[in-house]
């Protein structure tokens, strides 16, 4: 902001609003992390205070780690999220490229059809999906989850990416064609790097609902072998007793991987190697 457009009251106002919003958004997260380091008595005695030497307790974490399978649940979540993300980005980008680059009959209709899923929640089809998975013997496999999440993520990916791919310079693609590059090379080497920031956006939007999802793991893959973290954490939510220490610790741990993935993608959002291609 230049000095000409800056005014003190406005700056203060903007910061006040942003800080308030940040506080509201972070409050539950901080509460969870804070309480995960406290003893049971500490959690219920003074839920809003940070851990003191008296209330500090790692019992939650030891329970979670000691549960043994929890590492495995993490692995499952990670495999499902990363694999789904990979397929969503790959197929989404490919479909988007085809829609934006090639003129063929029904192009617009196809684009609409592929984007339709944005408006229809995939959970409406749960029963049919379950029948499908039973019929194909995929119940209680991670494959089932990956397939469903890929389908769930594709519409938005195709929609956003095709908008961005339309903006990639035609001249650049044509220069590649004249130099004898195949359409695949043009797609992977010329176009994808240029739409990397939008890929990162799509990745973030796709990743978080998958990681947090409870619905499909519960229905399609509830077995011990294929449990994800969110499902695993339910273990501590008993009908009569709830192990709050363990739940809070599990949730705190579950935040970490998403945070790391987010950090990776947001770097991509910022980094632009795109300049200098045209103009």
């Amino acid at each position: 902001m230049s000095t000409a457009t800056r005014s003190l009251p406005r700056t203060i106002g903007a910061h006040a609003i942003l800080l308030t919003y940040t506080a509201i958004a972070l409050f539950p997260v901080i509460l969870v992390i804070m309480n995960s380091f406290k003893s049971r008595a500490g959690i219920f005695g003074a839920p809003l205070t940070p851990p003191t030497p008296k209330t500090f307790d790692l019992i939650g974490y030891t329970t979670v780690i000691g549960q043994g399978d929890f590492i495995h649940y993490f692995q499952n979540s990670l495999v499902v999220t990363v694999a789904s993300l990979f397929f969503v980005l790959l197929f989404g980008a490919m479909a988007a490229f085809a829609l934006s680059e090639y003129r063929f009959r029904g192009n617009t209709l196809m684009g609409l059809y592929l984007a339709l899923g944005i408006m229809i929640p995939i959970r409406l089809g749960t029963v049919a999906i379950l029948q499908l998975m039973v019929a194909s013997g995929l119940v209680n496999t991670l494959t089932a989850l990956i397939l469903v999440y890929t389908a769930q993520g594709l519409p938005l990916a195709v929609f956003i990416l095709s908008e961005f791919m339309k903006q990639v310079s035609d001249d650049l693609k044509n220069a590649g064609r004249i130099d004898g590059l195949s359409e695949y090379t043009i797609f992977f080497r010329l176009v994808l790097p240029l739409v990397r920031p939008s890929m990162a956006t799509v990745a973030v939007f796709t990743m978080i609902p998958i990681w947090n999802d409870l619905w499909f793991p519960l229905i399609l893959a509830p077995s011990e072998e294929t449990k994800t973290v969110t499902l695993g954490a339910q273990l501590f939510l008993g009908q009569f007793v709830t192990n709050w220490n363990a739940i809070l610790a599990a949730l705190s741990l579950a935040i970490m991987p998403v945070l790391i993935l987010y950090a990776i993608f947001s770097r991509q959002l910022i980094r632009g190697i795109t300049s200098g291609a045209v103009k």
Binding site: L172, A175, I178, I273, T274, G276, V278
Partner: peptide, 13 residues
């Protein structure tokens, strides 16, 4: 043939 474009169209990488 070889073609030169208005927007240069160099490979950025």
């Amino acid at each position: 043939i070889a073609m030169v474009f208005q927007t240069y169209a160099l490979y950025p990488h």
